[in-house]
Design a protein around this nucleic acid. Structure first.
Length: 456
RNA sequence: GUGGUUAUAGCUCAGUUGGUUAGAGCAUCAGAUUGUGAUUCUGAGGGUCGCCGGUUCGAGCCCGGUUAGCCACCCCA
């Protein structure tokens, strides 16, 4: 037996980490509920059909496929060998694999809506917090198993939904104490307009992919790559102007109008962006129109979001989303539009860790530790402990009668703020010692008063 | 999936051109202390040097492979 290990890109979460993660997740959940969203869970695995082709060519490669059972069936050996040949050619084959781990939460959600649209009341607002899997090569902040945390509204074209989602972002990050996050917004139709003017709509994919890299590789490289993807000098110049747009939201919109204003798609996009950021209006600095925002995923058709971590930490986006007009169409149910956002929980965790934003009392679980000082002593302690627990104060009795030193150290390690000492002497007096570890102060309290002691 | 880089005690790391029995700090455990936790002092345990193979009289060190972490590309949260 070799040393136990984990599959590449996966992690165990110890108690401390789970507490911190739950702090983030519970905050997000509370806000989702506050805005009227309902919970949904879908299976870890989906039929491979449901996932393939939904995330682009690259995405397909990153889907974790599950090997079928019964491949050792001798009676089917010939067929299976033929099937496997096809797998070797890079094609999926139902004989070998027909299920896969889910790659994100949006497509399974679309599948759910397509299957249940007759029963759902629209607009259907759901949130979903579950792990997803990608066969990507891990790096800092990138894992093969990670949690996504999504909220979507389907069955409504109203831009009010975008306003609500932007507010959810703002509310969550403010509750988590993450100042200086920027919610960047752009519109797919604006990118489409740019593509129409620069070489046609079929160039949109190329253009968005390259634009997306701007802050990583810089303007010069972007221009080079655009030429490499078949754009001429004039078109590159327009894109350069487009990328150079800067200033306040109003100023940016004005500049875009002069550049692309005649285009119908651009007009529509501008109109919707204006609606969103004017309506949002609580704090202009957190919602920023950013025309360099592209987002790779193909199914977005309207406003797109991305949340940038505070500039003081080096971290990519910690959230993203957008509007898709026909997601369930992929599953044979057309005309159900939707819009959604996603929180990058692992990255938010890293950012909060780096900025030291987790509350100090997050590790307190047990509030009171009863010392164990003998059989009859601990019997009394047990009795009092159960009464404390009934009052909702989480408590423990040390498991054996050992010296003080050990019991104190246990309390310290578990961050237990109070210890209760009941020994022979206390039993006789009908009292107990209550010691607050942070101050070192100890009080003697009668058993009668004990239950009203303010452990806080 | 392509390329680069790293791997030594539970943790953070030393370890000379290849040469006896691989070290330190922190942590753990025991004792000084049979009813009071930062501390101090004394002592102890802990390692197939990631794993497999090769070169060599001899490998933690050199070579090949493999696994995992990190970094870049691709893509993305």
């Amino acid at each position: 037996m070799s040393k136990p290990s984990l599959p590449q890109g996966t992690r165990d979460f110890g108690p401390d980490v789970v507490r911190k993660r739950n702090y983030i997740l519970n905050t997000i959940k509370k806000v989702f509920e506050l805005y009227g969203f309902q919970p949904l869970e879908t299976p870890a695995m989906e039929n491979l059909d449901s996932l393939m082709g939904k995330y682009g060519e690259e995405g397909d490669k990153l889907i974790f496929k599950i090997l079928n059972n019964g491949l050792d069936n001798k009676e089917k050996e010939k067929q299976l060998r033929e099937d496997f040949e096809k797998v070797l050619e890079g094609k999926n084959n139902k004989g070998i694999t027909e299920r896969a781990l889910k790659y994100d939460l949006t497509i399974p959600f679309a599948r759910f809506v397509a299957m249940n649209h007759n029963q759902l009341t629209f607009p259907f607002k759901r949130y979903q917090i579950q792990p997803v899997w990608r066969a990507d090569r891990p790096q800092r902040g990138r894992y093969r198993e990670f949690y996504q945390c999504d909220a979507d509204v389907v069955g409504s074209n109203a831009l009010l939904n975008e306003v609500e989602l932007a507010n959810i972002y703002q509310e969550v990050f403010s509750q988590l104490g993450l100042k200086d996050c920027t919610i960047k917004i752009n519109h797919r139709k604006i990118l489409a307009a740019l593509a129409e003017i620069c070489g046609g709509l079929e160039k949109m994919m190329d253009i968005t992919i390259v634009i997306d890299k701007l802050d990583k590789i810089g303007l010069e490289k972007v221009k080079e790559e655009l030429v490499g993807r078949g754009l001429d000098a004039e078109q590159v110049t327009i894109i350069e102007k487009y990328l150079g747009i800067s200033g306040s939201n109003d100023e940016r919109i004005a500049q875009l109008k002069t550049l692309l204003g005649e285009n119908a798609n651009a007009k529509k996009g501008i109109e919707e962006l204006e609606y969103l950021y004017l309506k949002f209006a609580t704090n202009d600095s957190t919602l920023a129109v950013d025309f360099t925002l592209a987002r790779g995923l193909n199914y977005y058709t309207g406003i797109i979001f991305e949340v940038a971590a505070p500039p003081s930490v080096k971290m990519g986006s910690i959230g993203g989303g957008g509007r898709y007009d026909d997601l369930t169409g992929l599953f044979g149910v057309p005309d159900i539009p939707g819009v959604g956002i996603s929180f990058g929980v692992d990255r938010i965790y890293d950012v909060m860790e780096e900025l030291n934003l987790f509350p100090a009392d997050i590790h307190i679980s047990t509030q009171v530790l009863f010392f164990n000082l003998g059989e009859t002593e601990s019997q009394k302690a047990f009795e009092l402990m159960q009464q404390l627990r009934k009052k909702g104060i989480s408590s423990e009795l040390y498991h054996e009668n050992v010296k003080f030193d050990k019991q104190f150290k246990y309390a310290e390690k578990k961050n237990i703020p109070y210890v209760v000492i009941i020994g022979e002497k206390e039993l006789e007096e009908g009292s107990c010692g209550v010691k607050k570890l942070s101050t070192g102060l100890q009080e003697n309290i009668s058993f009668n008063e004990f239950l009203n002691y303010p452990f806080a």
